[in-house]
Design a binder for these strands. Structure first.
Lengths: 229, 229
DNA sequence: TCAAAAGTGTTGGCATTACACCCATGT
DNA sequence: ACATGGGTGTAATGCCAACACTTTTGA
């Protein structure tokens, strides 16, 4: 067996090693008004209103995760469905930004800052600095997760219709979904329970309502944890 | 369309926001002597030789990727098959460590530092600080990649036998592989070309040798790029 | 009454799994 | 000669994509 170091002397940094300020930003995904949206911050710039990703800096005694939780709290989001770190992006001589992405149940929590709002992902164009790269990374990770786990259901309201879920999948993946196959997959999975109610909220048509089968869903929690990386 | 900020005033940091020193470490995987191994650094500690992951600190003008490349260079590794960032691990009040993992063609490059050596992954026990978490993360990412892409072939010597590839898969995934099914998969994929040679190097038995079909393999480069996240 | 959208059923193909088996060879 | 490990073939399975189809319902 290989013996490894259990405690090590404190490293002394020579001047050539820089220390940096650490920025945190978070791509917050939510399903709002039938659309996949991202939480953005309004910023006054030369009298014009423009948008950027929510961001903060790491404080003393905080981990990156702590700082991100704080960032969410400050926006009125007490809890997220899922939160994970993305790559750290380095802008030499400027700063290091650790990206994150979060999934939010927008039925449970509403943002409390007038400077923020939900922006449809198709509207997001050119972000400044490295924020586009981080956004793309978040979207790619969301796509991967949504294809391999049932987590998308948690983005929907507690009572939802299958066409609504299909609409969400299409928004996230950016492709058309085959309706019969999606129904088979979802209903066959036992993730959802059918309710004795019908809805007119999503479309003008009435549709059967379903709700998450928590017991079955929770048995997949360990699989969802894999998507931390 | 939403307008976004294209340039922003420099942020002034208040004293409550800390700046940190950024450590880099890298889990370097290689296939050596029929085993999956990781590059470790010998460290004198109270007269005993112990092992740790290769590490450095980010210098001025460097990105995390730059620093990792430098770390590899300093060990004699000019090029890697694959290199990707892992999560940043935060130890409050101490430092931030950005993990990386690299795959190395050990036939092409040999380490030039007497303080380093290749350690079988099954021998790696308790690492100090957060290095275990980073190691587990690297291994999980490697497993995922190896299951979904043919990259494992690139870890092998230029000429290799199928039982050797099978052995590598078993070492990485930690499970038994069904021999007939693996053969079908690999040979059916056209990733490999059969050579008119036989080998006695891997086992005492003679086996047919194969080599990577670069043209076919390269058509999957874009898929491999997905594993940056 | 008609179009659009909800909802159902059938099919074929592809990939994965399990496993039985033959063959070559080093001891 | 025989055990070990290299190498081959086949059948069962399950998943997924494609698509034809019926039913409902709001306008």
């Amino acid at each position: 067996m290989i013996k490894t170091v259990s405690n090590r002397k404190r490293v002394k940094l020579s001047p050539k090693f820089v220390t940096n300020e650490i920025a945190i930003n978070c791509i917050v995904f939510g399903y709002v008004g039938g659309n996949l949206k991202v939480l953005m911050v309004k910023e006054e710039n030369d009298g014009e209103n423009k948008w950027r990703l929510p961001a903060t800096f790491m404080k003393k005694n905080e981990t990156a995760n702590d700082a991100t939780q704080r960032l969410l709290q400050e926006s009125g989001i007490k809890e997220s469905i899922f939160l994970s770190q993305l790559n750290a992006h380095c802008d030499p001589n400027r700063m290091i930004t650790i990206g994150h992405y979060a999934l939010i149940d927008t039925e449970k929590y509403s943002i409390n800052k007038s400077t923020m709002s939900w922006i449809k992902i198709s509207y997001i164009q050119q972000l400044f600095y490295n924020q586009n790269a981080i956004f793309e990374e978040a979207l790619m990770r969301l796509k991967r997760m949504v294809q391999d786990t049932p987590i998308a259901i948690k983005l929907l309201p507690r009572k939802f219709a299958l066409p609504e879920l299909m609409n969400l999948y299409e928004a996230i993946l950016g492709v058309e979904i085959d309706k019969p196959n999606l129904r088979k997959k979802i209903l066959g999975s036992k993730y959802v329970l059918q309710l004795n109610e019908k809805s007119y909220s999503f479309t003008y048509r009435s549709t059967k309502l379903y709700t998450l089968n928590l017991a079955v869903f929770n048995s997949y929690d360990s699989k969802i944890a894999d998507y931390d990386f």
